[in-house]
Computed example of a mutant assay.
Amino acid sequence: MSLTAHIPSHRKPRRSASKLAVRAGVAGGVLSTLALAGTASATPSAEPVHETTLEMPVLNMDLASEVSSSVAKAAENTRAAAVDGELNALEESARTGAAAEAKKAKEDAQQKADAEQKAKEEADRKAETERASRASARASLSTKSAPASSSSEGSSAQGSGTVSAPATGSAAAIVNFARAQVGKAYVSGGTGPSSFDCSGLVQAAYRQAGISLPRMSQAQSSAGTSVSLSALQPGDILYWGSKGSAYHVAVYVGGGKFVGAQNSSTGIVERSLSYDKPTGAVRVL
């Protein structure tokens, strides 16, 4: 028997592993709690959290000025376009009004010209009638005052010293043709055979003698050689107005008379030189 057999052991009995684990867990939790509390007391309080608000961008002064300038420019362009449209409308209206005025002025001028032409023709008819009346009166007085024996065949005094001899040859052909047309109508531009104007009659008469004359009275008054009205011969061309710009021509037929296409109211007539004294005469034969 051992000496220590009766001596009780002082070692503590072993604890089970599960109990140890539980206690270790509790202790760890307590320590963790204490540690967190200490940390919390040692760390200063955090800043309060503020909400963040998004701000819209602000236009700077240069961008605002540019936008304002663009708006003003657009407004100016719009105003300019409106002004241009108004000006175009006014111009179109002015053109239309000017065209209407020009048309009316032309119509008025034509009416005035027609009225003046009508008045001139009327005045010519009256003058022709008065000349015919005076010529008839003078012829009547001459017939009553002159002896029957005073008239003779051949040469005779024709006033202003004009002496007429019987027409012969080409002159006779011209005179005979001109006298054969007496009584026919006067038509401006007429060249026969039923109607003539003054230069058309002279041209046609000279054609009978194989002589070609210009068509217009102005050129006919420059044909041939100028002769005095006191030395006329049958077949000479009489003209009224300036030589080269005459407005009327006729054929001298002798005996102090001429045959001419006077106007539309008298037609082709044979008249005395005193009825309507010509300005001058030319000789082509």
Rank of each mutant, 00 (worst) to 15 (best):
S93P: 00
G25P: 00
G97Y: 04
A231H: 11
N88K: 04
R14I: 07
T168R: 10
S150H: 04
V227I: 01
H10I: 08
A75D: 14
P214F: 11
A209M: 10
D197A: 06
A42F: 02
S65A: 14
K73E: 14
A167E: 08
V67I: 15
E55S: 15
G169P: 01
A250Q: 08
L141R: 12
A246F: 06
A109V: 02
I237S: 05
K257A: 13
Q233A: 12
E116N: 12
A42E: 06
T33Q: 02
I174Y: 08
V83A: 13
V251N: 05
S194W: 00
A171R: 09
T168W: 06
L3W: 03
D84V: 02
W240L: 08
K112E: 15
A109K: 03
S142W: 00
A109E: 03
S142M: 10
S150A: 13
S149E: 14
E128F: 05
A80R: 09
S226W: 07
A148V: 12
E76I: 01
Q111N: 13
A281I: 10
L87V: 01
S164R: 05
P234T: 12
P214H: 05
A113D: 14
I211R: 04
E116T: 07
A35Y: 02
A27V: 05
K144G: 13
V187L: 09
A37N: 01
H6F: 15
E66V: 10
T78Q: 13
S265D: 09
F258E: 15
S274V: 12
G189R: 04
T52F: 09
S41G: 11
A231M: 00
G85S: 11
K257G: 04
Y206H: 11
S155T: 11
N176F: 00
G154L: 01
A261I: 03
L36F: 03
G38H: 01
V284P: 02
I211N: 04
E91T: 07
A17K: 00
V284N: 03
L3M: 06
T52M: 06
A246I: 12
G255Y: 09
A37D: 02
V67W: 07
E101D: 10
G255T: 08
S188G: 10
K144W: 04
L20S: 12
Q203N: 00
A27W: 01
G210P: 08
S18R: 07
Y252I: 01
K118R: 08
R134D: 15
A115S: 10
V83P: 00
A64L: 10
G29P: 01
V202P: 12
N60S: 11
P234C: 12
A204D: 11
A109G: 03
G154C: 05
S242T: 06
G85A: 14
K112S: 15
T191N: 08
Q233E: 14
R131H: 03
N176K: 04
L63M: 03
P8L: 07
A27T: 11
V58P: 11
R79T: 09
S228T: 04
G29C: 04
A72E: 15
A250N: 11
G154W: 01
Q158C: 09
A172D: 12
A178P: 10
P44I: 00
S68C: 06
L232Y: 01
A139Q: 15
G169S: 05
E55L: 14
S170L: 08
W240C: 15
V251E: 08
L63I: 12
L3Y: 03
V259Q: 13
P8K: 06
G169K: 02
S70G: 06
L273M: 06
Y247S: 15
N176I: 03
R283W: 07
A205T: 10
A281S: 13
